[in-house]
Design a protein around this nucleic acid. Sequence first.
RNA 1: GGCCACGUGGCGGAGUGGUGACGCAGCGGACUGCAAAUCCGCGUACCCCGGUUCAAUUCCGGGCGUGGCCUCCA
Length: 446
Amino acid sequence: MTLRLHNTLTRTKEDFVPQDPTNVRMYVCGPTVYDFAHIGNARPAIVFDVLFRLLRHIYGEAHVTYVRNITDIDDKINARAAERAKDRNVPVLDMLREITAETYRVYQEDVAALGNLPATLTPKATESIPGMIAMTKALIDGGHAYAAEGHVLFDVSSKRDYGKLAKRSVDDMIAGARVDVAPYKKNPMDFVLWKPSSDDQPGWDSPWGRGRPGWHLECSAMIEESFSPGETIDIHGGGIDLMFPHHENEIAQSECAHHGAPLARYWMHNGFLNVEGEKMSKSLGNFVTIHELLADWPGDVLRFNMLRSHYRQPMDWTIAGMRESWNTLERWYARTEPLANWRVGETFLEAVSDDLNTPQAIAELHQAGDEELAGGLRLLGFNPAPERLASKKIVDTVEIERAIEARNTARKAKDFKESDRIRDELLAQGIVLKDGPSGTTWEVKR
RNA sequence: GGCCACGUGGCGGAGUGGUGACGCAGCGGACUGCAAAUCCGCGUACCCCGGUUCAAUUCCGGGCGUGGCCUCCA
């Protein structure tokens, strides 16, 4: 059984062959920590966690390194900090540290609540500044970058195959460009490696003055520091919207700084996510954060719902889908939880190994016996325990038990009018009764 | 304007050149005092128009539609 992955570089599914099966290397672009992560951010976190687990299953836990960075220096963060610092009348840089630390903390919590394993390494951009400066120097020395008006820019004309990931030529992009081109750029597509900072912006001393890195440079430097400098990694992942310009530019920087050594051999991109048929945006008011979702829904449900669509397909996130996911998981957890034994089924593993075809894999689980169901759930990152699906709704258990007793007394006396009245009353409170062979059980209706 | 995806039954969602994946909902049955839950059974779908083929939902071309990227974005 071979693992096949869709490679954005070739736009085809390819057999995955790591350079070194005892050292499989994967890097995924993590969040910019300026605001709570939204449901769209959850998609890559979950998708690549499944891939991480699958790689560990195939190559062994000790042989897979998964790096997910934290972007904690960025102009969006600066803008947010400046805004809030003004409101609260505190120094901008203090505000900035508070925002990134707090957002990072919540992100880690949210991601863990979705059933994701911690990444092997979680580098922060602010901890890789010297590496970024060194890479910028190397690019200038190699004739791939130039300093201009306090900025350092990457010269796209210095890389013949610039655009190979996004499959577009520099000429095409210039033709379609809608941006004002900064006067100090030699070429409109040149992008910033380093830019000057004012006193109230975070900055580091560099050969080009006090400044801060461009976004793309951060990832290139963090990859270099997380793995061995200059080495090609196996998999680089992220959202499809990062393909251009972010990933294209990472490739340009890293390859030029490393004398042409490819940055990554397999590039993977997850599709976009819509909410109830509409693009998620703050103006539409359908902006859903993971954090608020977790207040109403178990993390496992959110995870399962995500995996019901293939990661490359556009996905529509709906409440109806979440309910369906909850029901399915609840039934499955009831079956698998008491089982001590589990094993990963062959057809299930084939499906997951076919470019993470989780919808197909889930279909296999619907047909599977208890042990294979348990094994499949485990591999996908679920921990079958009913309490993980407990409703967050607060109910008066004692009151319910008392009502059930009263109802069963009425039933014994064949007073069905009374027993139905009690059942309806509970139903009105959202409590559903089930009369089984071993007595009456209840659950919270959704 | 340029580039790129996608269009499957009431809904979600895989897949395939030739016997209707799978789930949810719905319908019928079993069970139940009646229900719920559970179990059993039930479905002739692949945007449109051409082409290739013995055969196309699947391949090719064109059209229409939806969405994404080209600017911060998972």
